[in-house]
Amino acid sequence: MSTTSTTSPDVERFVTDVRAHFADLDADEREELLGGLEADTADLVAERGTQALGDPATYAAELRAAAGLPPAAPPPRRPRAVGASVDRWFDGARRRWDAVATGLPGDPWGFAQALRPAWWLLRAYVAVQLVDLVLGNGSRGLGLDVLPSLRGYGAPVLLVAVVVSVQIGRGRLWPGRGGAAARVLLLVLNLVAVALTPVVATSLISHEAAVREAAWYAPSAWVDPGIITYQGRRICTLRVVDKEVRRVEGLRVLDVDAGVLLPMNTPGC
């Protein structure tokens, strides 16, 4: 019987943690002992869920004892005791969350998990916009564009940020996997992204509004200075009428400084 198995980040982390308790063996011995453990653990999780994964240290001790090996020497990275308890706290929190979230009607947690890739994209976008706010457009008082400007490098920087964010999300890039410090860092970064998303959104909205206003007041800033445009369309004839739809005669159209008489009925129209 062979159920197909793909490894989840939980399985990878567990196997990595167990593997750390066999550091005293050479590579061949370790492979002999731990080869296939990933597939076995993936099967276990597929059948009984992540809560079936126990404490990696206890598991490793049991494996060593059954394999006839002496107990492992204390791991060389002893100062990581804090890290281990942080890890345990995270694991416990995750297990408690899973216990609460699984079995809810309609599986809302499964739905939220399916949306994770969208979050990976959004956080990359928010991060690049924040950089733009601090170092690019924002620092020059210009507000944010929909596509981050970053002095012209917005598009490639955004692309790199998306790749990095997705790879972290998939656990393929530090700190998406690894020790307690990495997990704390990842949590903090995600919380920062969540907290600052409204800041970016507000800046985008206000900037968009400003652009639209500017398009009305000062079109000559970026189109042919001889032409008036409104919402992207050229205005050749400005017809102004009163309440009874009678044409108002003798009208003059001035620019925003009231200094220049704007051209109408130019030959280009």
Binding site: L37, D40, Y59, E62, L63, A66, A67, G68
Partner: peptide
């Protein structure tokens, strides 16, 4: 599980 894997090895 670990006891069985260790025994197999």
């Amino acid at each position: 599980d670990a006891s069985v894997y260790g025994t197999l090895r």
